[in-house]
Design a protein around this nucleic acid. Structure first.
Lengths: 353, 353
DNA sequence: GTGAAAGCGCTAACAG
DNA sequence: CTGTTAGCGCTTTCAC
């Protein structure tokens, strides 16, 4: 209630325990060079005074802030939420604070890279899912702390990401195996900065088709955003109105997949009877909607990135170019099915009974 | 790449600009007592050296850390994501850092309240949506900084929350106005700590029924969690198997509402034809699914809470018991409809038309 | 308008 | 094992 009252200092604890400040410091940091009795006395004094070490003062002399910073485009997404929910406790367990920089738009972004507020205020920076320019990367390079790139590959710099190409391959092959030949891909707009994954997943999709001897068709790639209902209707409409409409669709994200399914069903197109749909993520919605998908684990990603950060902080000898690539897993559920009427050519009418 | 190189200090900047450290300090803090020419010289020197003030050193003397801490049960929810996505930039604009403590389980919680790592490391603490014990609240009271309770009412302490009772009233009245008399309420389990809202919304629901002269029926209140598919099936099954099943359902959250709708449709129950469903939140899913709901704005909440925090930090004279109660808004969409067959049973015939 | 000096609370040598 | 001494990099009097 009275935030004005001053915090006790180490000197206060030292007085009360009848020792010197150094001894208090040693005790509180758990150094072994303190006799058990003194240790006990100090700890009690500290407890009684409700004493807490000031990180500011400590870091002034140690040169370490005890803070790990993360740079994120938003917090309002399944991916970021999961990743940080695992990163947070991990850092906490290592006695570190988690500092978050949310950069939702271009203005904030410019100002962040101009001022680099993390400079001198963190021991490491985790950059999540931004598609950085070379200039921006260069700025981060001389931030004076390890910078870990998460959810994106950064040449010659530590990064942690999921194997998007392989995941997209799995998704597309799954559809191919079910007999589909006309397969659409729906990437989402890169506004939130996740375009690295978009590109990679498109690549995996294309590679799978090529492997199967199916020519690529740009008409089948339609960018949509799950927040944009009208865009969804337009996108789905476009696909359905093609001379040769797709019988399956691979959406870049589960949320988009679910939105597409909803749109299809409103147009009286049955899923999976008339159109198979597969997503990517294994987002929570996937389970309730029995959505086939390719699972990735953002919480693993957060954990790995956090561990890498701690390692790079503690050991400047560590490999600063390490890449950690995380696996994906195909999870077939109820929104993908064998192509309804496996007619023997591609021109023929698409009448599913 | 070489994180080992030391950061330049104010003394370095001072040397380069040919002034004293004090002048550098004054310039960089924007104090007016610096001549334009000197100011320019200092700023250039700082830029050239890529200098950034060390918060640690500054806070050691000012006593302010420049950090606002938040305590959250998880980051993996629409509510928290939205709230922090607005809080972050707001703090940034005020030159503050955002420090996040994620407390997902009881172990972390206990350890947080025992050690209070925020002590001395932040200027204010925002506590989001925990249902705190009296002991915990007492601990926070002598943290030595303003503590703002968000998404919950805390007696005699600054808090920011939405008017859940009024919101629930609106939702329930909406259903009543559509002719429904048997209305179910589905709260979610309080594991994530959002039980304050649960309780309040239940109250609003009950109040609306009472106003309408409808006796409360415990059978109609079924706790479900949207993550738990089997629980959903059981809960929905219970409601449908009642002697007198409900014709409408009010779900505590949109995500739950959507999951219930999905479960109902799988059981071949049409929404809204056979069962009206309304949610709470105006979560993003609500729009794609045309879900009727009661809107609240977590981003407003984050913003208000942030502003309150800044105010309490800067002005210790400010009212430390202020409560900010945010409004809700009924958003009728397509999942609620007039009761289908207005049979003349029960109390009074409800015949519209 | 600017500089000199003192000191914020801690840790890191160095003695003992 | 413990105390003493010196700063860490800033901001803040107080002179000028």
């Amino acid at each position: 209630m009275s935030p004005a009252q001053r915090h006790p200092t180490m000197a206060d604890v030292a007085d009360r325990a009848g020792v010197s400040a150094s001894t208090v410091s040693r005790t509180l940091r758990g150094l072994p060079t303190v006799s058990p009795e003194v240790r006990a006395r100090v700890q009690q004094a500290a407890r009684e005074l409700n004493f807490a070490v000031s990180r500011q003062a400590a870091s002034l002399v140690t040169g370490k802030t005890g803070v790990v910073a993360v740079l994120v485009p938003t917090l309002n997404s399944w991916f970021m939420g999961s990743a940080l929910s695992s990163l947070g406790p991990l850092l906490r367990a290592a006695g570190r604070e988690l500092n978050v920089y949310v950069i939702p738009d271009m203005t904030e972004r410019t100002s962040f890279f101009e001022r680099l507020p993390a400079r001198r205020n963190a021991d490491a920076l985790l950059v999540f899912g931004f598609d950085l320019t070379d200039d921006e990367t260069a700025r981060l390079d001389d931030l004076g702390m390890p910078v870990i790139y998460v959810s994106q590959h950064a040449e010659g710099r530590p990064s942690v990401y999921v194997d998007d190409v392989a995941g997209a391959l799995k998704a597309t092959r799954h559809l191919l195996n079910l007999g589909h030949r006309r397969i659409a891909f729906a990437p989402t707009t890169g506004a939130t900065g996740f375009s690295f994954s978009s590109r990679e997943r498109l690549l995996g999709y294309q590679q799978a088709l090529t492997e199967a001897g199916i020519p690529l068709d740009d008409e089948l790639v339609v960018t949509m955003a799950f927040e944009d209902k009208r865009g969804l209707i337009a996108g789905v409409g476009h696909l359905l109105s093609l001379r040769e409409p797709p019988t399956a669709l691979f959406a870049e994200q589960d949320e988009l997949a679910v939105a597409v399914i909803h749109t299809l069903r409103q147009a009286r197109i049955e899923v999976p009877e008339q159109m198979s749909v597969i997503g990517f993520d294994d987002h929570q919605v996937a389970e309730w909607f029995d959505l086939s998908t390719v699972a990735q684990s953002p919480s693993d990603m957060g954990r790995q990135a956090g561990e890498l950060a701690l390692q790079l902080i503690d050991d400047s000898e560590a490999d600063h170019t390490r890449h950690i690539v995380l696996p994906t897993q195909l999870i077939p559920r109820a929104t993908t099915a064998r192509r309804a009427s496996p007619q023997e050519d591609d021109e023929t009418p698409q009448t599913p009974s």
